[in-house]
Amino acid sequence: MRNIWAICKRELLSFFVSPIAYFVITGFTLLVGFFFFNYLSYFQRAQQMAPMLEMRGGEAPNLNQYVIEGVFQTMVVILVFLIPLLTMRTIAEEKRKGTFELLITSPVSVGEIVLGKFASIAIVLLAMLSAALIFPALLVEFGNPEVPPILSGFLGVLLCSLGFASIGMAVSSFTENQVVAGVASMVTLLLLYVIQAPAESLGGTWAEVFQYISPIEQLQDPLRGVLSLKSMSYFLSMILLGLFLSRRALEAYRWR
């Protein structure tokens, strides 16, 4: 436990001494803010047209559906591109600088290295997503959205981002080159993000499989305020799979 915490602290120090963390967090909140503004004005226009809709038997526009779901879904797209930038250096850089040799020859297990690094990324992501909570908070202050879907949606997006991060870290453990790690994890995450696209035309079992492994599909429940066992276990298994692969990659690196 002490080793995990030592490695986590060291990683956090690198994140916050170098400009990486600040740039990623600023970029993220800037983009989310931009989309928040767009969804809001979209909602406002919908509200102006609401009387007409209601006359025809439609529903009045709903703040949760129009703005909050939209913001959370957009966050996931932004994360697909930003998380590789956070994770690409984690292990690849240690290998390149030779500090990996130091870690491996210290009385620290590979599992502890992986968990320490993952914990540090998790803390950065938590800080980043919490910073973006300001937007839903504004709605709660000045509007009347339902709060439970905001909380469950936030948890869903957080778990999803941790899953992305653990996959990014696994990719980073397979290479010494940061750019390779970054590009490969971006491609992997993007593929995962759009994997349910061919589901409809394929049909059958494959459609179900693709839909099951799609993070967008799995986010539907938490975004609607439901913390279902299915989506929670999906995100947890994604995290565990990434951690397991990272550990395996590092163990294998020694035995080449």
Partner: peptide, 19 residues
């Protein structure tokens, strides 16, 4: 095997922890 972004004292403290 040094971490460039740490000071010498911080670095040695980290090493002491993991050792």
């Amino acid at each position: 095997p040094l971490y460039g972004e740490m000071t010498v004292r911080e670095y040695l403290k980290f090493i002491a922890e993991i050792k």
